[in-house]
Design a protein around this nucleic acid. Structure first.
Length: 425
RNA sequence: GGAGAGGUGGCAGAGUGGCCGAAUGCGCCUGAUUGCUAAUCAGGUGAGUCGUAAAUACGCGGCUCCGAGGGUUCAAAUCCCUCCCUCUCCGCCA
């Protein structure tokens, strides 16, 4: 959410942002409603002041005066009720608009419509070359008896899967490696709820707009399954005013992630690329409202993830996500895309976002500066490792000619020292 | 899930219809005093919003907020209803 005062002062910046992000936004209506709400709000405040002042005289009034006052107050009350309802309706409409106003993208966010317009800014490693015909991750995993998508679908529907044996262990190894990698870098590990109140989905900017992508409980419980630990972790300090000396906060959390993938029917149906449930290690930074500091954090969390990829020897590139592919809340987003031989291309494995105070404003996540003034924090987050897409990259890039998998050195301690997994196929 | 007790400012804790945005204590800030520290004394110390103003500064003024939302009343922290949360006991259970 943007500051209404900012929208009032810089309506053209908001219009430009909406255009760049291809998100509809009726700035004129917002400004109209803003004027109306304030005008009627002022009138309401005046009447209310009158009501209170008169009411206070009541206690000391004589019986005759009381009758007169009550008559006067009854009239006021009716007028106030009408005004109050009007203001409430206007505010609700205004809030409905504000909930959908996009955050302002950074100047160096490229113009573009969709992910095909994202701009590559860095490439590390070369696409893996093989002296043999490489297998895709499904062929490898099924060949080794490590993957059962038929049973997954029978149990939980399409886009669900069962990892077995060493692939299940490899998943654990990657997650554990990623988690410890971040703990070493000073991030505080958290175990968090993945079933959260709907208001938390709203606070982090997933709602309104992302309802189709999230699983919700039925009306008995006002809860949703999160698509990422970003949601509960960013909301950890909601409604708080953090002391300056406790910032920045750096958190890392391993969690299950749930995605409905509505609208993706028919896309990436084979294998583990697009699934309803996976595990992910996520990093979140909360700090003061300073654009430059946020940029530094953004670079830092990007590097934290890149270090994982480099340690695992996986070829990847970094893209600067274009306006049309950016979500409503982000100021800027850098995706890491990892080489996936079966796709003969790079596939998104990480997403590093910075939000300025967009999430913090909704979450009422604030801090007190050196002068005692209260501000909304800045928030950022990035993937460290997402299980299924990481497994695709590992299986396909680290496969040997005989269908076994060479384990990157950093993962071996989590696999009892084994350097190779599987049997010759 | 059943029974009971509660949710008030950074914390503790008063307040059962108007004089309460809220006693008191602790903490914190400023000043006074004091070799230093401690102690003592005086004053101050929530968030938000609207207005005033050259100003997102200081100040001044209004309004909102006593878990959330509704209701009763001329008037609600206080009475009623619903929900959320915490604690105690019982039941169930990984």
């Amino acid at each position: 959410m943007l500051d209404l005062k900012f929208i009032r002062a810089e309506p053209d910046a908001v219009r430009a942002a909406a255009a760049k992000k291809r998100i509809p936004c009726d700035v004129d209506r917002i400004l109209e409603l803003d004027v109306e709400v304030r005008a009627r709000g002022q009138r309401f405040d005046e009447l209310r002041a009158e009501q209170k002042a008169t009411g206070k005289a009541m206690g000391k009034a004589s019986p005759q005066e009381r009758e007169r006052i009550i008559a006067q107050q009854t009239e006021l009350k009716a007028e106030l009720k009408v005004l109050e309802d009007e203001v409430a309706a206007l505010k609700a409409e205004l809030q409905g608009h504000l909930d959908r106003v996009p955050n302002i993208p950074a100047d160096d966010v490229p113009d573009g419509v969709d992910d095909s317009d994202n701009v590559e800014i860095k490439r590390v490693g070369e696409p893996t070359s093989f002296a043999f015909e490489p297998r895709d991750h499904v062929t490898l995993a099924e060949g080794q008896g490590w993957l059962d998508t038929i049973a997954g679908a029978r149990i939980a529907g399409s886009r669900n899967y069962i990892l077995k044996g060493d692939l299940s262990l490899l998943e654990g190894a990657v997650m554990r490696f990623a988690l410890e990698h971040m703990v070493e870098r000073g991030f505080t590990p958290l175990s968090v709820p993945t079933l959260v109140r709907t208001e938390v989905m709203y606070g982090t900017g997933y709602f309104p707009g992302g309802e189709d992508q999230a699983y919700r409980c039925d009306e008995r419980d006002d809860l949703c399954l999160v698509g990422t630990a970003e949601v509960p972790v960013t909301a950890l300090h909601a409604e708080e005013i953090l002391p300056l000396d406790q910032l920045p906060r750096r958190y890392v959390a391993l969690s299950s992630c749930y995605r409905r993938e509505a609208g993706a029917a028919g896309r990436d149906t084979r294998g583990l690329y697009r699934v309803h449930q996976f595990q992910k290690v996520e990093q979140v930074v909360i700090d003061i409202a300073d654009a430059q500091r946020s940029i530094e954090h953004h670079q830092a969390i990007l590097q934290n993830a890149e270090a994982v990829m480099i340690a695992l020897g996986l070829p990847y590139r970094v893209v600067n996500v274009c306006g049309g592919d950016l979500g409503q809340p982000q100021v800027q987003k850098f995706d890491i895309e990892t080489w996936m031989p079966s796709r003969e291309g790079y596939g998104e494995t990480h997403s590093a976002s910075r939000f300025h105070d967009f999430q913090a404003r909704r979450l009422m996540l604030r801090y007190r500066d050196g002068e005692g003034k209260v501000h909304f924090c800045h928030t950022l987050n990035n993937t460290v490792a997402a299980s299924t897409r990481m497994l695709i990259a590992l299986l396909e890039n680290c496969q040997l000619a005989d269908g076994r998998i060479a384990v990157p050195e950093p993962l071996r301690p989590y696999l009892r020292g084994r350097a190779v997994l599987g049997q010759p196929l």
